[in-house]
Design a protein around this nucleic acid. Structure first.
Length: 406
DNA sequence: TGGGTTGGAAGTAGGCTTTG
DNA sequence: CAAAGCCTACTTCCAACCCA
């Protein structure tokens, strides 16, 4: 199945615990940028600093660190960086990383160069950001999404990278901010995001809006005429790229789907939204899922969970659970589940299905959430389910002790 | 370390079939 | 009937590899 990849794997261990945040406006901005420039941007804003006098935000990246992050071992890596830094005609550079985004204050849609200035000298990369994106990358307070570098740096396709950012922003928004319940997809919770096909192409940088004033103008309106955009895009150099939906699926969507499933805490499915005679594909409906278990550190730092939200979540759990449980214990359960209500509901529902009576509900739920128990009795044979129950039961005393220690 | 080589991945397009 | 689906043949591109 997995073909042998050449070369060494990048060392992502140094990225553990490193996060960067972007405003959701920036995440959903339309525009083009090479994978390398997107990644450099992400690493950059993670440690960006603001000069309070000038208001300019800049970051300094060391070549040795970058080398590790990108897993490059040969000398040509510096050349690659040099290449994105210097704007060579016809080649994409960091400075070409352009975004079209809507300024909420002025309601104007404009194309801006995200990076205004960059140099690479003596193995040190200096990046200065357009002050117009200051509020999108620095000291964010609301309406933003946090990403782990360890998740995004390993992605090899620009589409994987962009889709991951878009889908994670949407997932977090629906899950932690709006507290939506999501939709059941193959017994897993999924959040739905519908994107117009042309809009998707714009967001993934397949159609570049920044080089065409007509397209820019077309997407300024609240309900853009996407047919017109598509028509105008045909005139672009790469405008015909992915004019076949099957090619878009094969090379962009399916690959991103596989790569996200393999490497990140999110996975997704999608389906076409069809309309008209012949069932022309007009959009894509994404179903976003969180794999949860092994990458729970992502949720831990998700900043949207405020104390107030925690209280709301605890209230909701209290309502959901029939038995009387102390607030203190509810909190312990919620902590274990990273305030993911669905996790708690799932384990509680599973517990209810069990024939044997659970003596200590709190201890059981905490253990169940920690180990992410899955449907045992119906699918697995009885021997296994018996085993797992015995094990849980056996650990109650120890669990209780641990809880009291905390 | 740098530079050419090369295999595989990315992307294009056409023909034919299937679908709503 | 229009457009998707599927298969395939083909071109282009890129980065890992190898060797001097």
């Amino acid at each position: 199945m997995a073909k042998k990849t050449r070369g060494n794997q990048p060392d992502f261990s140094i990225l553990e615990g490193k996060f960067y945040s972007k405003s959701n406006a920036l995440v959903n901005a339309k525009g083009k940028g090479s994978l390398l420039s997107q990644k450099l941007f992400a690493v950059g804003i993670q440690q960006a600093e603001k000069d309070e006098k000038t208001g300019i935000i800049s970051s300094t990246l060391y070549g040795t660190d970058l080398r590790m992050i990108f897993g490059a071992k040969n000398g040509s890596f510096y050349d690659q960086i040099k290449e994105v830094v210097q704007s060579v005609k016809g080649k994409p550079s960091l400075l070409d990383y352009r975004l079209v985004y809507a300024d909420d204050a002025t309601e104007r849609v404009e194309a801006i160069n995200v990076i205004t200035d960059c140099t690479f000298e003596n193995g040190i990369l200096n990046i200065r950001y357009n002050t117009k994106v200051n509020d999108d990358i620095y000291r964010l307070k609301s309406n933003y999404t946090t990403y782990a570098l360890s998740e995004t740096m390993g992605l090899k396709s620009i589409y994987s990278f962009r889709l991951y950012e878009i889908l994670k922003a949407e997932y977090d928004k629906q899950s932690y901010v709006a507290h939506k319940n999501g939709r059941n997809l193959n017994n897993e919770k999924a959040y739905v995001l519908e994107i117009n096909l042309t809009d998707l192409k714009l967001r993934l940088g397949i159609i570049d809006p920044s080089i065409d004033k007509e397209i820019l103008k077309a997407i300024q309106s609240e309900n853009p005429d996407y047919n017109l955009v598509e028509e105008l895009a045909k005139g672009q150099k790469d405008g015909r790229k992915y004019s076949k939906v099957s090619n878009l699926k094969t090379y962009a969507l399916n690959r991103a789907k596989d790569e996200l499933a393999e490497k990140t805490s999110l996975s997704f499915e999608y389906e076409e939204i069809k309309a008209g005679r012949g069932g022309k594909v007009v959009g894509i409906r994404f179903f976003i899922r969180h794999k949860g278990k092994e990458k729970k550190d992502i949720i831990d730092i998700t900043p949207e969970i405020t104390e107030e939200m925690k209280e709301n979540i605890i209230d909701e759990i209290n309502e959901y659970i029939d038995e009387k449980i102390k607030i203190k214990d509810l909190k312990a359960i919620a902590e274990e589940a990273d305030y993911d209500i669905e996790k708690i509901k799932k384990q509680y529902d599973l517990m209810k299905k069990k024939k044997n009576k659970i003596e200590d509900i709190v201890a059981y739920l905490i253990k169940a959430i920690r180990d992410d128990y899955s449907e045992p009795v119906t699918k697995v044979n009885s021997f296994n389910s018996f085993n797992s129950f015995e094990q849980n039961h056996y650990n109650f005393k120890e669990l209780e002790r641990k809880l009291l220690d905390n």
